[in-house]
Amino acid sequence: MFLYPEPLAALVESLRKLPGIGPKTAQRLALYLLHAPAIEAEGIAHSILEAREKIFLCSVCGNFTDVDPCVLCQDVSRDQSLVCVVESPRDIIAFERTRDFRGLYHVLHGVLSPIDGIGPSDLKIAELLQRVQGGSVKEVILALNPNVEGGATSVYLSQLLKPLNLRVTRIAHGLPVGGDLEFADTATLSRSFLGRQEL
């Protein structure tokens, strides 16, 4: 039976380790990299190495950065009294796209998940508590995904934060813009009633 030469087999095996990449996709990507101009393949390899070398977690908010503190934490025009707690750095990008939030962020790098063995000590919770006790933070906005793990993490964080005399809020739950009421599920509809606003 024909097998790939060792360096190619090693490349396929390495690519298979990436999330969402199965054996066939790994094989296709590996062959593409061999067919592509050498400069392109070298560029990809260089980008991976450079990112690994230069990117680290911001010592203040836990976001990915190449300077410490990150550009968001250094920005004095942002409201230093507001901290928005998110699950992952990707959520910061989503909020920044709205251009509506001008406070600071804190990345937990996960949520509580007993089935996955993720407990409080696996998240950046101690760092959050230390950060908000400086006195400049007045409000913590919990912006975790509206699912069971996100909800439980929010409740847990609020129990820890409220005794510190902070305003603790959670982003609204309810109907998506452009959605149809007819197709909304009962849990979303119930929460949309609870979070109704006066006009």
Binding site: L112, P114, I115, A152, S154, V155
Partner: peptide, 13 residues
Amino acid sequence: IEQDLDRLAAASC
């Protein structure tokens, strides 16, 4: 379940 860590832990078990 999401309102209480003990209940989340039990449901997960």
